[in-house]
Design a protein around this nucleic acid. Structure first.
Lengths: 269, 269
DNA sequence: TTGCTCCTCACGTCACGTGAGGTGGC
DNA sequence: TTGCTCCTCACGTCACGTGAGGTGGC
């Protein structure tokens, strides 16, 4: 039988606040060893200290409570360590993103590189292998790389060569609500047969104002601003999806500074 | 006169969601250039794009809205850049803390280094230069280093040598509510005269269970758990403040792995 | 005219923190 | 007995997101 302590003493032992301990009880994450049925007083066993310490560390790393729950309830050490490693990987990715944003912030505060060159262009109707899904902005990078990998695999399976650069179209909701329908496509000859998973689809064209974005995707809003401002001042924007055409990007190009992407804003004739 | 756009188009231009734009209007951070008095429709000027981009970047870096407000309203570039640099410094500090927590998490998952050596000790009443304030856990490091710097300056001004290691006492609320009264002290001879700012104060002693914590402060909860668990199992804890005695620490010791701190848990005789 | 965009509430999210008001334990 | 600890609501925080229900603009 291990010693029992009050919630206050358990808090001093573990450095977890009393309010947090009550919360963890309420959600079932760390129920006290005993609860007095008449007074409601919580009593914790000293053996619960290590669990509380683990929870505290994970929360200090901003792991969401459902994740903490999974770690604490993990059946064995490998499962537990995998859940923790997962979170540390997500934190690394977050850190990378933050580095990118800091760089983007600096570039925003420096004087601009001169006006962006803009073109009017009529893009014809295409035939393409496509994937379409509602995607949130946070997931867009991962989803796109997975989707393009799938499209190129399908193209190889159908023994066709892409006949132009890959692209994607973004519904207005993707920008306005931070989540919306995204369609990625790889253009193929109209004669391409359906593969096991994918039939070629038409991708309708139209008239666009086009600007080339050079550099990492973190910076995208600058080119969007340039293209969109030009449209607002000189053309009539259409509510159609905005198109991006990936002239140079991952996985072939490794350095984000070398990425080149066309941003195509649909306008009326 | 710059072109005006609807909230939806402004959202596509800036990559700030419509909901966020309405929120920024509501709090006065980014009011639209015009609001139709009858329909309530917002109209943004294209010249507002750069402000929106700046706000977006700062929010991506988790700068709180009051801080964003300060940056956007900054009277000139130096003031603005200083506010941003400030936030980047805070982010660096956060990152340091995170690194520490990750290390602490690893050490928690590794097998323990064997049981901690614990002593019973009667600490006598002291005379000391002291500072006392309610401090939150988040601020404790910064506050302590400032407070000790002040105490040593005062001791030098009074021409007295400290006659023992410095320490601090922490009220229960510091642990139970993540904020509570902390008293830092530097022991001096009882004959020490009052200086301009500080009169020597008595620091009452008592009976304690004492364990030595070796390593960075991030790890403190492990030693607290060991000392406190021992007390729970073998002694009667008192509600008095817990005392830490800084045998080796900053600023003299640089490597956190070399820090040594006594954790003293008050018990009844 | 139709459907799309925009509007304003009101409420939800996440992980607790902040009191208020009251009772039990030593 | 007194004061301290503990209890349970109910509501607040932060920066928006999520619908509901309705209207304006092309």
């Amino acid at each position: 039988m291990s010693a029992m302590v009050t919630i206050g003493e358990f808090s001093r032992l573990t450095h977890v606040s009393v309010k947090a301990l009550r919360h963890y009880h309420e959600i079932g994450l760390l129920p006290p060893s005993e609860v007095d049925p008449v007074t409601g007083y919580r009593r914790y066993a000293v053996t619960q200290v290590s669990t509380a310490q683990l929870i505290r560390r994970l929360r200090q790393l901003d792991m969401p409570l459902p994740g903490v729950f999974a770690v604490v309830a993990a059946p064995d050490a490998p499962a537990r360590d995998a859940a923790i490693r997962d979170h540390l990987l997500r934190m690394e990715a977050e850190l990378d993103r933050t580095r990118g944003v800091v760089a983007a912030l600096r570039s925003l505060l420096e004087p601009a590189d001169g006006p962006l060159h803009l073109d009017h262009r009529r893009i014809g109707d295409l035939t393409a292998l496509t994937l379409r899904q509602v995607v949130s902005r946070a997931d867009i990078g991962a989803w796109c790389s997975e989707a393009f990998a799938r499209l190129y695999t399908e193209a190889a399976a159908a023994r066709v060569e892409p006949i132009g650069p890959a692209g994607a179209t973004y519904d207005a909701a993707f920008f306005e609500e931070d989540a919306g329908a995204v369609l990625v496509y790889v253009p193929v000859p109209p004669s391409t047969p359906a593969t096991s998973g994918l039939a070629p689809q038409p991708v309708p064209g139209g008239l666009f104002v086009v600007g080339v974005h050079s550099g990492p995707f973190t910076d995208f809003d600058r080119t969007y601003a340039a293209v969109g401002s030009h449209v607002a001042e000189h053309d009539t924007a259409l509510p159609d999806p905005i198109r991006e055409i990936y002239l140079a990007g991952p996985p072939e190009i490794e350095d984000p500074d070398d990425f080149r992407t066309e941003v195509c804003w649909p306008i009326s004739a």
